[in-house]
């Protein structure tokens, strides 16, 4: 491109779309290209998945996978901003693709409509650089964590309830703990209110889902040599909307963790059980060999 002010062979529309990224110290054209060469799998296209997908798409991640078996309901629309009133009854991933394609048609969107389970998750996630967990139940969360540990796949975790949210990034580095280091098992059903039972202040999902997108983008840039920020590695960020406050606590890798602390762990030996509207995650004693 002689006489061109631009360094990479991209149309002017590309420069225009990503101008505010390209201007950023640490990103530039090459950083934007790195995002374009990256991929993210989003588990769930609901409250957390909506803002995460919107920002990842707008940012120009090259390939975005969306896994959700559910359809859009009227009571989703208070927080699941990927979807609109006319989408009620449609598969969430179909509604999401329409919305995301309008925001950025250059992103390669892939959809998975089967329910994430032990049989399909490995194949689903193996082609992605980063996994973002926007699921809404403990069995899926533990399954996603366990598979990410086993596959060495970075996982951006986020969860919400009422006015409260948690977010962190499990990088799978030798020093980084996993979700089971923090919470080895799920609560008993009586101690685990769901958003259906306890409610969710809709914008809380926007805050936490956006933080998840920020973590994913930071991770993708950092790992490609564009050091744009510090990840929430071994740090749990806690948002409390009832006080408009953020807190942070330190996480650690538990050497006795049943998952990341065991070389013999295999998620295929674990039962991830969902019961009625509440969820339990079981680890049979024989799940971890040795």
């Amino acid at each position: 491109m002689s006489n061109s002010p631009f360094n990479v062979d991209k149309p002017i529309e590309w420069y225009n779309r990503y101008a505010r990224h390209i201007t950023l110290d640490g990103v530039g054209e090459e950083g934007q290209l790195a995002l374009e060469a990256s991929s993210v799998l989003l588990i769930g296209a609901g409250g957390l998945g909506s803002p995460a997908a919107l920002y990842l798409t707008a940012a120009g991640v090259g390939r975005l996978g969306l896994a959700d078996f559910d359809t859009v309901s009227l009571n989703n629309l208070q927080r699941q901003i990927l979807h609109g009133t006319s989408d009620i009854g449609r598969l969430k991933v179909d509604s999401a693709v329409d919305t995301l394609h309008e925001i950025n048609p250059d992103v390669n969107l892939r959809t998975y409509t089967e329910k994430v389970n032990s049989d399909n998750i490995w194949k689903m996630m193996e082609d992605y650089d980063v996994i973002v967990d926007g699921s809404d139940n403990f069995p899926t969360r533990y399954l996603v964590n366990d598979v990410c540990v086993q596959a060495g796949k970075p996982l951006v975790f986020g969860a919400v309830l009422q006015f409260f949210g948690q977010v962190t990034t499990f990088t799978q580095s030798d020093e980084c703990g996993c979700y089971r280091c923090l919470f080895p098992v799920a609560p008993d059903p009586e101690n685990a209110p769901t958003c259906v039972e306890a409610g969710i202040f809709g914008v809380t999902t926007g805050i936490i889902g956006s933080l998840q997108a920020a973590q994913a983008l930071t991770l993708l840039l950092n790992r490609n040599g564009f050091e744009v920020g510090k990840l929430l590695e071994n740090r749990l960020q806690i948002y409390d909307g009832s006080e408009s406050s953020f807190r942070e606590v330190k996480l650690y890798r538990n050497p006795d963790c049943l998952v990341c602390g065991s070389k013999d762990f295999d998620f295929r030996k674990v039962e991830y059980v969902e019961q009625c509207s509440v969820n339990q995650v079981l680890i049979p004693k024989n799940a971890v060999a040795g």
Binding site: G44, D136, R141, A159, A192, V249
Partner: peptide, 30 residues
């Protein structure tokens, strides 16, 4: 003070004036 008490003496962890203790629970909503 932001450190997991499992890395200290768990429930026997000594407290000093001015310390801050934070309790959190697993949540799964999305």
């Amino acid at each position: 003070n932001e450190e997991d008490i499992q890395l200290k003496d768990n429930l026997q962890t000594a407290l000093s004036p001015g310390d801050k203790v934070t309790l959190i629970s697993a949540i799964a909503g999305g």
